[in-house]
Amino acid sequence: MSRNKPLTKEQETELISILKKRFEKNSSRHPNLDWKIVEEKLIHQPEKLWSINEMEVSGGEPDVVYLDENLSIYFVDCSPESPKERRSLAYDYEGQTSRKEHQPKNNVIDLAKSMKINLLTEQDYRALQKVVIVDQKTSSWLETPENIRGLGGAIFGDYRYGSVFIYHNGAQSYYAARGFRGKVKLSEF
């Protein structure tokens, strides 16, 4: 991943082209939305474009998805399985460092922060699954409520047997098939 280096004009143009093709190919994810509106917002928010690029280069296949009733424009990781470059991570730094042996290389919270993206909440994850089924072989860490995290746990979700499942695990746990999905909200300007 590019890590805090601004995108060049060529990179911006290439990314916008990729996003436009994905947007047009998957119109059911964002009915009645014109690409020109999205593109204009992207052009005026280069910091958001940078974050979306981080999602793209780590395997997230970001696309526009409506996650709320306000029809806010979010770019969300829509890859069929959790993004490959964002797997085998503990939930947060405390969970990561609490492992004395076989410590994971990183954690979800710090990596998401470095990418300037937000984790999906349980509500977001359920909304995403209504638009595109994901995580049939993998799972994704989700933003965990403080009361659960305070007791040492963290939540994650997947899709099995035609249903969305939300589970819990210790925050120090990590698996080759568990990653995380993020979102970037485009602002009004």
Rank of each mutant, 00 (worst) to 15 (best):
residue 33 L to G: 02
residue 34 D to A: 08
residue 34 D to Y: 05
residue 35 W to I: 03
residue 35 W to P: 01
residue 36 K to P: 01
residue 36 K to M: 05
residue 37 I to K: 14
residue 38 V to F: 14
residue 39 E to F: 11
residue 40 E to H: 10
residue 40 E to K: 14
residue 41 K to H: 08
residue 42 L to Y: 10
residue 42 L to K: 12
residue 45 Q to V: 08
residue 50 W to F: 14
residue 50 W to N: 06
residue 50 W to M: 00
residue 51 S to P: 09
residue 52 I to E: 15
residue 53 N to A: 01
residue 54 E to M: 07
residue 55 M to C: 03
residue 55 M to N: 03
residue 55 M to R: 02
residue 56 E to Q: 15
residue 57 V to H: 13
residue 57 V to K: 15
residue 57 V to F: 14
residue 58 S to M: 07
residue 58 S to L: 08
residue 59 G to L: 04
residue 60 G to I: 02
residue 66 Y to L: 06
residue 67 L to G: 12
residue 67 L to D: 11
residue 68 D to I: 00
residue 68 D to E: 03
residue 70 N to R: 06
residue 70 N to S: 13
residue 71 L to M: 04
residue 71 L to W: 03
residue 71 L to E: 13
residue 71 L to T: 02
residue 73 I to P: 01
residue 74 Y to P: 02
residue 74 Y to I: 03
residue 74 Y to N: 05
residue 75 F to T: 02
residue 78 C to N: 06
residue 78 C to M: 10
residue 79 S to V: 04
residue 80 P to T: 07
residue 80 P to M: 01
residue 80 P to E: 14
residue 82 S to C: 14
residue 82 S to T: 13
residue 84 K to S: 08
residue 84 K to N: 05
residue 84 K to P: 05
residue 86 R to G: 00
residue 87 R to P: 01
residue 89 L to G: 10
residue 89 L to V: 07
residue 90 A to H: 07
residue 90 A to N: 12
residue 93 Y to T: 13
residue 94 E to A: 14
residue 96 Q to W: 12
residue 97 T to R: 13
residue 97 T to W: 07
residue 100 K to T: 14
residue 100 K to D: 09
residue 100 K to S: 11
residue 102 H to P: 00
residue 102 H to Y: 15
residue 104 P to M: 00
residue 106 N to I: 00
residue 106 N to W: 11
residue 107 N to P: 07
residue 107 N to C: 14
residue 108 V to F: 10
residue 110 D to Q: 10
residue 110 D to E: 12
residue 113 K to F: 03
